[in-house]
Write a protein that binds this DNA or RNA. Structure first.
Length: 488
RNA sequence: CGGGGUGUAGCGUAGCCCGGUUAGCGCGUCUGCUUUGGGAGCAGAAGGUCGCAGGUUCGAAUCCUGCCACCCCGACCA
């Protein structure tokens, strides 16, 4: 076990914090609730971002950028929207500082008060829809498929590295469509993009579903989501895609001329994922020795460690191997540090979650072998050095697949059908994970269950089988099971 | 916003209750030697406004007052 990381069994929450900090993903900053994303963490985020960006563009979207500040009046135009965000907005009231008369330092200049306060965006629907009014006149202007990479601020009362910080990075897609069906298709399409990304890149299986009214995005008609399961049995909402109906079009008066020369409000979607995915990645795969990063997102795939120390001969040999690997698209680092000993380096690279470590020493040169250690299973093998490139290329695919498989097996074991309230309460504490149970469909019952157990309805899975049953809590009739869990 | 905790070297901490030499220890850093296939050893060295501001006292990291900051738990949330 790692020297400086709390074990999951001892304190899961502390384990997560230790990992994020000790592996160099992020750190606390001088600003309450805000974190510094360190180079290694940012490199992983860049890989996520670049991949998603490509996927958005492949589905016809383009990037744009809208202001950080939103006039207060914009936010109040959509009633449900402001209801949801008002309590967590940072507000700019002045635009100048000055030296205090009594020499006590800088103060806000009372003469520099803004006519209208500016809100630091918690999300950009309002500023974007205000802009779309100018951009959309005709059905020929539709669909409008725009994405923005940005930072947003939500003044949460309690924060947690990556999972919930005051400022966070994300992307927000905002699209406008001529018809309801087309907007719903878009909402679902982007949900699929997120699910594909989570599974194929993050090796994290997710459940696609729709939120109940209580859990819906403020201002949406429907909120679709992908829900993932963390190793402590808690669920994590990893991405959302909202069908906004005509709510924002009406609030910002965005109408267009149809082919038939009628005037109609446009239909909207918005969808987003954030740096929260970093937290999900950590909690889905990592272990007591450190991070375990899926190869497709790892900044470094392979590290070559000359043993016991880098001699010219070993480095030359390592460089040849590295160059061959790089020609196959493998990201390789050669450890040329001559201070630390191999054991120390092994532990460090395991902490960083680098998928494959190669050990190359005099013994290997003699035997024509190289030691291959994989991070996900911690298995080590001695491999014929002449076949190492092909071996690694295949191994990286194996690791990616194995990580997904392992996470999926854990997830599947933790979806438990439950039919009685006693069992529901017991399993929440003893097993965790998703509990598949009947629910009477009312917000009141959902709220009651949440108050009593802290479990929420994570989603109603898409293509959910319909079956008659009775609500786990009230015994009233129900037509389908929904997924409950305690969540981050 | 409620409850709890912490603030001493780059990091982690002891000392505080019960005031008294030069604020101790571990990690890390630097130098040297020996080591080196799973977190090396020995020797030496550098590194401190004890969170900030007042107060009590011959004397304050320690006692008193006020302030600030951050973390953790809960309610709110991506």
């Amino acid at each position: 076990m790692s020297k400086d990381i709390t074990s999951r069994a001892d304190d899961y929450s502390q384990w997560y914090i230790d990992l994020v900090r000790k592996a160099g993903l992020a750190d606390y900053s001088a600003v309450k609730g805000c974190m510094v994303i360190k180079p290694y963490g940012f490199a992983i985020w860049e890989n996520m971002r670049d991949t998603l960006d490509r996927m958005f563009k492949d589905t016809g979207h383009v990037n744009a950028y809208f202001p950080l500040f939103i006039p207060k009046s914009f936010l109040s135009k959509e009633a449900a929207h402001i209801e949801g965000f008002a309590k967590e907005c940072a507000v700019v009231t002045h635009y100048r500082l000055k030296n205090a008369e009594d020499g006590s330092g800088l103060i806000v200049d009372p003469d520099a008060k803004l006519e209208e306060e500016l809100i630091v965006r918690p999300t950009s629907e309002t500023i974007i829809w205000n802009t779309y009014r100018e951009w959309i006149d005709s059905y020929r202007d539709l669909p409008l498929l725009i994405n923005q990479w940005a930072n947003v601020v939500r003044w949460e009362m309690r924060t947690r590295l990556f999972l919930r910080t005051t400022e966070f990075l994300w992307q927000e897609g905002h699209t406008a469509h001529a018809t309801r069906d087309e907007a719903i298709d878009e909402t679902r399409k982007m949900l699929d993009v997120y699910a594909t990304f989570a599974e194929e890149w993050m090796a994290m299986p997710v459940i696609k579903g729709v939120k109940t009214a209580n859990e819906r995005f403020a201002g949406a008609e429907d909120t679709y989501c992908i829900e993932a399961l963390m190793q402590d049995g808690k669920a994590l909402q990893a991405g959302t895609s909202h069908f906004l109906g005509q709510n924002f079009a009406k609030a910002f008066d965005v109408q267009f001329n149809t082919k038939d020369n009628t005037r109609e409000y446009v239909w909207a979607t918005s969808w987003g994922v954030s740096t929260r995915l970093m937290g999900a990645l950590v909690m889905a795969h990592s272990d007591d020795d450190g991070l375990v990063i899926p190869p497709r997102l790892a900044p470094t795939h392979v590290v070559i460690v000359p043993i016991p120390k880098p001699t010219p001969e070993l480095v030359e040999r390592a460089t040849a191997i590295a160059n061959d690997l790089r020609s196959k698209g493998v990201r390789v680092k050669i450890d040329t540090d001559d201070q630390n000993r191999p054991g120390y380096k092994f532990a460090e690279y395991e902490k960083l979650g680098i998928p494959v470590r190669l050990g190359l020493g005099a013994r290997d040169l003699e035997n024509g072998t190289i030691e291959v250690a994989r991070r996900d299973t911690k298995e080590k093998a001695s491999v014929d050095i002449t076949t190492i490139t092909d071996h690694i290329v295949k191994l990286l695919d194996d690791i990616q697949a194995n990580m997904l498989e392992r996470a999926r097996a854990y997830r599947d074991e933790h979806i438990t059908p439950v039919d009685t309230w006693d069992e529901f309460v017991r399993l929440l504490d003893e097993k965790g994970g998703f509990l598949s149970a009947h629910w009477d469909g009312t917000g009141e019952t959902e709220e009651l269950i949440k108050t009593e157990t802290k479990a929420t309805i994570r989603c109603i899975p898409l293509n959910n089988p319909q079956e008659a049953g009775t609500c786990i809590k009230t015994g009233k009739p129900s037509t389908q099971r929904v997924l409950f869990a305690r969540a981050y």
